[in-house]
């Protein structure tokens, strides 16, 4: 029997997800043994035309990482959707937009202006920006369109499963691959990670006080965090309570608070809004009946850049999706 065909593709991403596949180490050999890789731009020399030549549904599963922010990415993921039985959104960017999704605080024009003109290391007095079409010596050159907005994969094509994480940890990848190969998959649309939030598995869980009230907010660079204590207890905002677990607590173990790369838990639509609610609920709540409106404002003001913090990974997947440009 022919081995199932598997494709890996990357869109707007950093390459970390590719590393994550390589990080399977010996297990990668098992995967390679069991499947037939038909597309993997970072490692193998297959082209778009090879995929186009396949029959619809010929690929058993496509693992697509990265968010969608260009015309080319949109075309490729639509092509892969057509050719694949299953599509797995691989990693934070495909799942919830990820770090590239922070570009949704701007639009194409403001990004181009910054990147191609205003950055101190760039000299571009004429203000020349990338064009979709340019004629050079009578020959028309084209570039794919750069969108105003970064999209999650499921905002562009139907996605069957999600493998969360920046990047997804090897154990979750192997579990997913094994489940696919054995045909033991959960309901379509599932996130292939535990349902509970990170606090469930956090090594500092027990240090968190039963009744937690944060008095002063501190940013990670302002303080050396106690490696045993719950970050929130120290006033360092940690997105763990609103973030799906399964990451292996890599950041926590490196003494850094969670920034939400696994996305919201099951049943939550907007991770950032949930975190807004939770943090505001426990921010300096002692004697709150005596707190004035102004004091509430100044408590809240302690949080610099709440949108950037609470939506660090999930802005494109949030209810608002992006900044509204005036």
């Amino acid at each position: 029997m022919a081995k199932p065909k598997v494709a890996f593709y990357w869109c707007a991403s950093c390459g970390g997800c590719e590393e994550a596949v390589v990080d399977l180490a010996e297990d990668l050999l098992k995967v390679v043994d069991a499947v037939d890789i038909v597309l993997w731009p970072v490692a193998l020399d297959f082209k778009r035309k090879d995929v186009e030549a396949m029959k619809d549904g010929a690929i058993a599963v496509s693992f697509i990482n990265g968010a969608v922010r260009t015309e080319e990415q949109e075309e490729m993921v639509k092509l892969l959707r057509k050719k694949s039985g299953l599509v797995v959104a691989f990693g934070s960017c495909a799942h919830i937009g990820g770090i590239p999704g922070l570009a949704n605080f701007w639009d194409r024009e403001t990004i181009f202006e910054r990147v191609y003109k205003d950055v101190p290391s760039v000299r571009n007095p004429e203000g020349i920006y990338p064009q979709q079409k340019t004629k050079v010596d009578g020959v028309e050159l084209t570039l794919p369109e750069f969108y105003d907005t970064v999209y999650t994969l499921d905002q562009v094509i139907n996605v069957d499963y999600y493998l969360p994480g920046c990047a997804p940890p090897p154990d979750l990848i192997m579990n997913a691959v094994t489940a696919i190969l054995e045909g033991k998959l959960p309901d379509k649309g599932s996130v292939l990670a535990p349902d509970k939030s990170l606090c469930d598995t956090c090594p500092r869980k027990d240090s968190k006080p039963e009744k937690l009230s944060i008095k002063a907010i501190r940013r990670p660079h302002e303080v050396i965090a106690d490696p045993e204590k719950c970050f929130l207890e120290e006033g360092i905002i940690c997105l763990g309570p609103a973030t799906r677990s399964g990451c292996g607590e890599r950041c926590i173990n490196a003494n850094m608070p969670c920034r939400g790369c696994f996305g919201p838990t099951k049943g939550v639509r907007d991770q950032g809004a949930k975190m807004v609610s939770a943090i505001a609920s426990i921010l300096g709540v002692e004697d709150e009946d005596k707190v004035t409106e102004e004091e509430v404002e100044s408590l809240v003001k302690q949080i610099d850049d709440p949108a950037g913090l609470f939506y660090m990974y999930s802005l494109p997947a949030s209810m608002l999706r992006r900044k509204r440009m005036g």
Partner: peptide, 9 residues
Amino acid sequence: RRISLLKKT
């Protein structure tokens, strides 16, 4: 508190 933080966001 929640609405105050939400408005800032």
